[in-house]
């Protein structure tokens, strides 16, 4: 149960997103979510795409930008306790491959959702608001910044 016995990584959260196959698993997970929503009889295709986008962005917001710290004790005496998972990624270095991938993927999903909802105004507003909720915290300028004290402690 000691962290890093085999790999000497103080905080495994820094490298989890770089593991082999992680991006593929993420893409497959989003695809699976979309297929499940498409299978619901009462949902039309535009509703399924909007729900996919919103649920995906909600999950991304929770797991990458709301949850702070690590789910296991680390030997660095709680240095990462006030950092979100996104801020722990790649030791805080910006513009790494993982950060680029996870920044672009909600944008691609947003494009697909906009296309398949035929740019309906209601869907557009919902999708855009959802996209901004996960894009703004990813900005390099907002690393460690807590606007209005949101999620500060």
């Amino acid at each position: 149960m000691n962290v890093g016995v085999a790999h000497s990584e103080v905080n495994p959260n820094t490298r989890v997103m770089n593991s082999r196959g992680m991006w593929l698993t993420y893409a497959l997970g989003v695809g699976l979510l979309h297929i499940v929503l498409l299978s619901i009889p009462f949902c039309s295709v535009p509703v399924a795409w909007t729900l996919t986008n919103i649920i995906h962005n909600l999950g991304m917001y929770v797991f990458l930008h709301a949850v702070k710290g690590t789910p296991f004790e680390t030997p660095d005496q709680g240095r990462a306790r006030l950092l979100t998972h996104w801020e722990q990624l790649d030791y805080g270095v910006q513009f790494t491959s993982s950060r680029k991938f996870f920044t672009i993927s909600p944008i691609i999903l947003y494009f697909l959702a906009s296309f398949y909802t035929k740019y309906d105004p209601t869907h557009f507003i919902l999708n855009t608001a959802s996209l901004l909720s996960v894009l703004i915290p990813k900005m390099p300028q907002l690393h460690g910044v807590r606007i209005f004290g949101i999620n500060k402690y």
Binding site: V3, G4, A6, H7, P12, V16
Partner: peptide, 11 residues
């Protein structure tokens, strides 16, 4: 047997 977090996540 050894698993995460002693090892990398998938190993």
């Amino acid at each position: 047997v050894v698993g995460f977090p002693a090892t990398s996540l998938p190993e």
